[in-house]
Amino acid sequence: MKNQWEQDLEICLEYGDRRKEFGGAVIPPIFGSSLFVYETTDSLSEAVMNEQEQYVYTRGTNPTIEVAEMKLAALERGEVCRCFSSGMAAITAALLNSVKSGDHVLCVSNLYFSTMELIKYLGKFGISHTICYETDAEVIEKYIQANTAVIFMESPSYMTFRLTDLDTVASLAKKRGIRTIIDNTWATPLFQKPLLHGVDIVVHSLSKYLGGHSDLVGGAVIAGKEIMGTLFTKEFLLMGASFSPYEASLLLRGLRTLPYRMHGHQENAIKIAAFLEGHPNVLRVLYPGHPTHPDFSLGKSNLTGYTGVMAFTVDGGYEGVKRVLDRLEYIKIGVSWGSFESLALTPNTGSNERQLLSEQIDPGTIRLAVGLGDSGRIISDLEQALR
C-alpha cells in the first residue's frame, strides 16, 4: 500500500489528467472556450439541469479547471473542490454558504486580516462574531454561543503561528451542529489534511504554495458533496467569481512540482528558524517547526511537515522593524508568499500598534517567507540586516 507521500506525489503528477481523452497530451489542454454547444435542445436542457457534471458555460464548469479541482480534492482527501478567482472569493463563498442573519461566527486565534474584515462586514446582515485568541479547545468551547453557526480557523494562525487541535475542535463543533471552516493555505494539503480530522470545509489561496510561481491569483473550497451541491448553485454560480482556464493551467504546472518544492521550503526554513533563534537581536521566533514553539508537540499530530512562512520579533516597534526590513538586500519586501523568492514584511504600519496589541500581535513582528534560494545567502542577508 502506498504511503501518503507516494499517494500525493501521484496525484500531483498524474491524477485526473485524462491523457487518453485528450489525445495523449502530457499536459491537459487549455480549454479557453466560454461556452459549450449541444446537438439538440433536449441535450442542452439536460446539461443545464446538471451543470455540476456537464460543461455548459465556463463560469460553472470547464475541463481544464476540472482537472485542477480533481487534484486539489484528492490531495485534501475531500469529495469536491471548486476553484475561484481569488482566495477571498473562496472564503466569501464558504462563509455565505454557512451562515444566515442572526447567526454567530467564532473566530479562533488570528485570521488573515481580509478574512476578519469580511466577517466584520457580515455584521451588516445581522451576523455577529467573537474572536477567541486562545487556541486551547477548552477555552474555545467557552466562546461558543447558542447561535454559533461557524467556527473559523487558520492553523497555524495569521502572524502568530499558533496551532489548533483540529480533532477536538471539530468534535465539539459536530456535537452542537456547528460547521467548521479552516484556511489551510500555510500547510498546503501535503502537510495538513483537515478533512481527515473532521473539519467540514477547507479553503485555500491558490496564489501561494499551490501555484508556487507568483504568477496567478485564485482560491479553492474543498468539502463534501452535500455542502458543495448547495455552494455550487448559489455562492459559486451566482457570485460569478470563476477561475480562469488559463490560470488553471498555471496551477496545474505548480502542482507538478509541489511535493519537491515544499520540502525545499521546509529544509530552508528549519535552518533559518534555528539561526534566528540564536541571534541576540531577535526576541522571539514564531515557527511551528522549531522545538521552541509552544505548539510544537501538537504539530506532530496535526502536521506532517512544515512550510517556509514564519515570524520573528525585534525591539523598537515600527522603527525597529523598519530598520531591519529596509536593510534587506536579497530578501525582498512584499506581500503574499509561497514562491521561489524570499519575502518579508511587517503587520505594523506605524499607526496601528494599539490594534496589533489588542490582537496579541507584537508590534515588532516581521513575517518572513523563506523561498527556494540558497539558505546561506538568506541567512547572510538576515545577519547583515539584524546587525
Rank of each mutant, 00 (worst) to 15 (best):
residue 57 Y to K: 00
residue 255 L to F: 05
residue 197 H to N: 12
residue 5 W to T: 11
residue 337 W to R: 05
residue 184 N to A: 07
residue 233 T to S: 06
residue 218 G to M: 10
residue 200 D to Q: 00
residue 311 A to Q: 02
residue 306 Y to Q: 15
residue 293 H to T: 02
residue 310 M to G: 09
residue 8 D to I: 08
residue 225 K to E: 11
residue 135 T to A: 12
residue 342 S to D: 09
residue 55 Y to E: 00
residue 333 I to A: 07
residue 219 G to T: 01
residue 268 N to F: 14
residue 146 A to K: 14
residue 326 D to G: 10
residue 165 D to E: 13
residue 292 T to Q: 04
residue 155 S to N: 07
residue 112 Y to V: 04
residue 336 S to P: 04
residue 114 S to F: 09
residue 366 I to C: 02
residue 261 R to K: 15
residue 82 R to P: 01
residue 136 D to C: 09
residue 184 N to P: 01
residue 244 S to W: 10
residue 266 Q to Y: 02
residue 251 L to A: 06
residue 64 T to D: 01
residue 383 E to L: 10
residue 87 G to C: 15
residue 97 N to V: 06
residue 193 K to P: 09
residue 331 I to P: 02
residue 130 T to F: 04
residue 321 V to K: 07
residue 334 G to W: 07
residue 199 V to P: 08
residue 229 G to S: 12
residue 305 G to I: 02
residue 42 D to L: 13
residue 10 E to M: 14
residue 116 M to S: 05
residue 283 L to N: 11
residue 117 E to C: 15
residue 340 F to C: 05
residue 99 V to C: 10
residue 182 I to Q: 06
residue 349 T to N: 15
residue 163 L to N: 01
residue 356 L to T: 01
residue 88 M to T: 03
residue 100 K to F: 08
residue 134 E to M: 05
residue 216 L to M: 14
residue 110 N to G: 01
residue 37 V to A: 11
residue 190 L to A: 09
residue 204 H to A: 07
residue 151 I to E: 00
residue 36 F to H: 10
residue 58 T to C: 04
residue 89 A to H: 05
residue 145 Q to A: 15
residue 182 I to A: 02
residue 110 N to F: 01
residue 261 R to C: 03
residue 128 S to D: 04
residue 17 D to M: 02
residue 240 G to W: 12
residue 255 L to G: 00
residue 146 A to M: 08
residue 126 G to H: 13
residue 169 V to M: 08
residue 60 G to R: 01
residue 261 R to W: 07
residue 1 M to H: 06
residue 37 V to Y: 12
residue 351 S to N: 12
residue 246 Y to F: 11
residue 280 P to L: 15
residue 150 V to G: 02
residue 129 H to I: 06
residue 229 G to Q: 03
residue 289 G to F: 02
residue 323 R to W: 09
residue 116 M to V: 03
residue 34 S to C: 05
residue 67 V to I: 14
residue 202 V to S: 09
residue 25 A to E: 11
residue 262 M to H: 14
residue 346 T to E: 06
residue 277 E to K: 11
residue 58 T to N: 04
residue 216 L to F: 11
residue 367 R to D: 03
residue 313 T to W: 00
residue 343 L to Y: 07
residue 227 I to K: 06
residue 117 E to S: 15
residue 105 V to Y: 02
residue 349 T to Q: 09
residue 113 F to I: 03
residue 153 M to P: 05
residue 153 M to D: 03
residue 378 I to A: 10
residue 192 Q to K: 14
residue 254 G to Q: 01
residue 195 L to Q: 02
residue 140 I to E: 08
residue 363 P to C: 13
residue 89 A to N: 05
residue 200 D to C: 04
residue 92 T to Y: 13
residue 351 S to G: 10
residue 270 I to W: 04
residue 128 S to F: 09
residue 238 L to C: 06
residue 152 F to W: 05
residue 233 T to I: 06
residue 138 E to T: 13
